[in-house]
């Protein structure tokens, strides 16, 4: 979602200015108001939030709920605390966009959040970040999946900031399922990713998929971990594609088993684009840049 349709978003924040469009079946408030209105939210916020959103989805909504957090002015520093609660048995789609509207704003976007999926709730959450090279981004999201719930969380950073820390933690209770996909198209950036799936409940399952492309002047450190604490299944799939000689990439896949009835598997690889693939695409009329773009996009979408 870009700014053209940001006005259609349910929660829009540009710099520090907030615009809310409520729809039937959900409540949206700035976090600093939510903590006053609902005492129970204090359990999820760290202290008093300054800004950010509270989204409480109480009834079925059949179109995507959208949020759009943008930075439009120079040197703006956003410090967000977000809380999303999906009530039981609901099937919800959520789209979130965080971006800076120009490449040279030297902005800072700090966001932490909790997303609670109540019993048997289903959430498909597509989250897209687009930043300028001078921006600093630090996010820390935690998902709690109650019994029987299901999460598909697709996080994509299509243009990385100069410095980025991305933490994601998902805790799965009994019979819940988490699919976490992190896609990073990284350039001129220092990126640190930490993602955790903790399979706490019996028959829970989690798949963590990471696709990272390292372009010019990129340093990527990614630590992905699945922990099993019950009879459950997890799979970790990390793949990196450094396409420039100045790209450095460290992928650390980690599996921790605390229940001998659980099963965790992983695959991890870092590899460059093959000459044969490039020559093949050139033999279809694409030049080198076009061929690399096609391969990179295919890798990120795979």
């Amino acid at each position: 979602m870009d700014m053209k349709n940001a006005e259609n978003a349910n929660y829009t924040q540009t710099d520090h200015e907030v615009n809310i469009t409520e729809i039937k079946g959900m409540e949206i408030l700035p976090s600093n108001m939510a903590i006053k209105k609902y005492e129970w939210t204090r359990e999820y916020f760290k202290g008093k939030p300054k800004e950010g959103y509270f989204i409480w989805i109480k009834e079925q909504i059949d179109f995507p709920v959208t949020t759009c957090m943008s930075i439009a002015s120079k040197s703006v520093s956003q410090n967000l605390q977000n809380l999303i609660v999906i009530e039981k048995d609901l099937k919800i789609k959520l789209r979130g966009t965080c971006n800076s509207l120009k490449k040279d704003l030297c902005s800072r976007h700090t966001a932490s959040g909790k997303i609670i999926l109540k019993k048997n709730a289903v959430l498909e959450y597509n989250h897209i970040h687009t930043w300028g090279n001078e921006d600093v981004v630090n996010t820390d999201y935690e998902f709690i999946l109650e019994k029987g719930s299901k999460l598909d969380y697709n996080y994509k950073v299509s243009s990385t900031p100069g410095n980025m820390k991305l933490n994601t933690k998902i805790t799965c209770l009994e019979n819940s399922t988490a699919n976490l996909t992190i896609i990073g198209n990284c350039e001129n950036s220092d990126v640190k990713i930490r993602d955790d799936i903790i399979l706490k409940g019996k028959n829970s399952s989690g798949i963590l998929k990471l696709r990272l492309v390292g372009k010019e002047n990129t340093k990527i450190l990614s630590h992905s971990r699945i922990t099993t604490e019950a009879e459950c299944k997890g799979h970790l799939d990390c793949q990196g594609l450094p396409i420039h000689k100045t790209s450095e990439m460290i992928l650390i896949p980690e599996l921790i088993c605390k229940d001998n009835q659980s099963q965790i598997t992983h695959e991890a690889s870092i590899g460059k684009i093959s000459e044969e693939e490039l020559n093949y695409l050139k033999s279809r009329g694409l030049n080198e840049a076009e061929a690399i773009e096609l391969i990179v996009n295919g890798f990120l979408e795979n």
Binding site: Y280, L294, G298
Partner: peptide, 19 residues
């Protein structure tokens, strides 16, 4: 090509769109 390479993630439809 006698033995064309696999290009993982690139759908044939996408390649045809490009070429």
């Amino acid at each position: 090509w006698q033995n064309p390479p696999t290009i993982k993630g690139v759908k044939l439809s996408k390649l045809l769109d490009k070429i």
